[in-house]
Amino acid sequence: MNMNTSENVLKGTRILVGKPGLDGHDIGAKIIALALRNAGAEVIYTGLRRSPEQIARVAVDEGVNAIGLSILSGSHKELVPDVMERLRAAGLGGVAVFVGGTIPLEDQPYLKEVGVTDIFTADMPLADVVSSIARTLA
């Protein structure tokens, strides 16, 4: 997929980049946010240490088309299903959710099982992350 296609698909889409849990730094989330912005998306960035409840509320209020959760703390197996459940309850069950950060390979099937569309690890090229999201929203 070339950059142009990503750009066209993401133009005008609204993507929430959120950091649930107690992570202390967010450079990775910010870099993803910037890459999505450069591909034409409107990125709503929540800042650090948000609860699943807060992330779901922001997603509802902002009428987002997709959500990216960045988690480094190792609590993904608790945080992700919690966010998913709240999104469903709020009527956003159809919104694609992506997870990035330090997610061990063996946990990925579980996250997919609870409804995550795709999982990004730190070593993945940014262009691949953007095109995966673009493909999903196409």
């Binding site: 993401l10 946010a33 912005r37 929540t46 509320r57």
Partner: peptide, 22 residues
Amino acid sequence: PSSPKNGGAILGDRIRMDDLEE
């Protein structure tokens, strides 16, 4: 602001408004 080049934007004003979210 939206980028005039690609239309993208980082919407960050609400980070300053944490206290209102609940």
